[in-house]
Design a protein around this nucleic acid. Sequence first.
DNA 1: CTGAAAGCGCTTACAG
DNA 2: CTGAAAGCGCTTACAG
Lengths: 325, 325
Amino acid sequence: MAEHAGVSISTVSRVVNAEKYVDPATREKVEASVAALGFLRNESARTLRPGQRTATIALVVEDLTNPFSAELAHGVELVAAAAGYVVLLLSTGRDEQGDRDQTREKEIVSELLSRRVDGVLMVPGVDDADGRYAALAERTPIVFVDRLPRGVRGDVVLLDNAGGSRRLTRWLLDRGHRRIGYVGGDRGSGTGARRFSGFRAALKAAGVPEHRELLRFGQHTSEEARTATEELLALDEPPTALFCDNNRMTVGALLAVHRARADVVLAGFDTVELAEVLVDRVALVTYDPVDVGRQAATLLFERLAGSTVAPRRTTVPVELAEFGN
Amino acid sequence: MAEHAGVSISTVSRVVNAEKYVDPATREKVEASVAALGFLRNESARTLRPGQRTATIALVVEDLTNPFSAELAHGVELVAAAAGYVVLLLSTGRDEQGDRDQTREKEIVSELLSRRVDGVLMVPGVDDADGRYAALAERTPIVFVDRLPRGVRGDVVLLDNAGGSRRLTRWLLDRGHRRIGYVGGDRGSGTGARRFSGFRAALKAAGVPEHRELLRFGQHTSEEARTATEELLALDEPPTALFCDNNRMTVGALLAVHRARADVVLAGFDTVELAEVLVDRVALVTYDPVDVGRQAATLLFERLAGSTVAPRRTTVPVELAEFGN
DNA sequence: CTGAAAGCGCTTACAG
DNA sequence: CTGAAAGCGCTTACAG
């Protein structure tokens, strides 16, 4: 490359980096050679120098087949691309029990550290018992999304899970429902726990007793949710309304209610396409996952720009959308 | 690191790379230091050496908010992770006309080349007029997904678009439909063109004339598809069935048909959750995008393992699923 | 405005 | 089995 242009490699570097103080004629010569040879600077070599960035951020999610993760990733990618960064995508997956695979998470942490990514966006597991996130956070700016694991400091972008659930539950209570079924996923996970606590808080505030036989946790797929809903509907005293704590649950419940032609009102967390045309009355708590990704990435880039303010917590508001005739 | 362990950096390298011919005692010493210091090899430095890989592949899609892309990415990630590789995710986006943004695509190609990714998986635009893919393909193994752009050689994983459309159309014809509306996206794009050609082929084979007034192209969102469907249903002689050429189209058509309570049978390409409970009768051509990603990644890793056979073409079969009472 | 030289953190022949 | 040394492709003071 340098020989082809008849200059030193320092000069090539200066041209490629668009530095000032290069003679226009020299610049032209070099640019001609760059074009002729299809020269593209080796990023690994550039990165090697201390103080140089990889211009790479990583996004760690559980599973991209969940639309939340996919849209989140899209929001992140938009911001990253605009900043000239590139996104490394890693999924943690789940083990047989539906928990986070800790081995895989540790592997991911090492990978990110080895590759010297400039920053990390992560939908974390609920706790950080072994300090794996802390070890990462010590060396790399990190923004957590959707939950802040116990035992780590870091910026975090949260959804208003409890608040959304409270509003959704109140919506049902306002319509006179007292026997509300709960179709839920993981009760232990941060998200599920917060949504359930919002549900309970609303009942308590209204002085409405809980019906333990109407609570179904542990469903992971819409199929499981459908079965759980069918069981609820088959009770001697079935619920008059259902609270679904995420989109999988809502889909399953919709199927069950629709097929049973049951007269049940639905309230669900997350957007579900076509939900509103399936049952007579439904309310959904929604938010824009793309925007969550955008916000989280923006926080991260503020850190990369040098911000050293105390860990920040942003809560993305949720909307209650009511459908039905 | 080397000093901490009291050995040379060569020895550290040997231990970290799990090479043989290291004295067990030395190995232990080094491993202790690695643990104590939290040492993690700098991947950029390793990569710099000629012949070394980045252990990175890139996936280029248009837009991750489309479930097809997201599930594809998941399949890719599974295979990559199993091989110890990491996935760089890049989206091309679309410009105002709904076309691929060529500037962004060129940017992506440079990025991939600069970063010396070991391989690329790409859902490409339809043509390669300026040879941007060819320039990439010359230096990097590449597998195209869903379409092979004109003017490039490369492995490719295709869907049976024309075949699926043919079957779907035949399904409608077998049920006596002769006036079939077509709700389509981009007619020019490889995918859309193939699906439409399958539709036409089936009509022709059955000796059924085309009704030009029943063809609606150019819809990009489900909202636009809904409007187009409403127009079709409002015709003096409306169609008795609708062919929807992708999931966005099917969603829009479902909404329109459902709200108009129209007596229309639907046939659609791609999976649409809950579709079957919305209308009385519907057939969908489906396939597993996760598996498409898995297959494409597998082809790529075969290339990375040294395969030099001629460009291969895989076609992922599609299923016809029939719903309704 | 430009070049020679050091050095980033590794891997890998080459000796020993 | 281990170390000294070269070299990967860059960037960046340092001279000039």
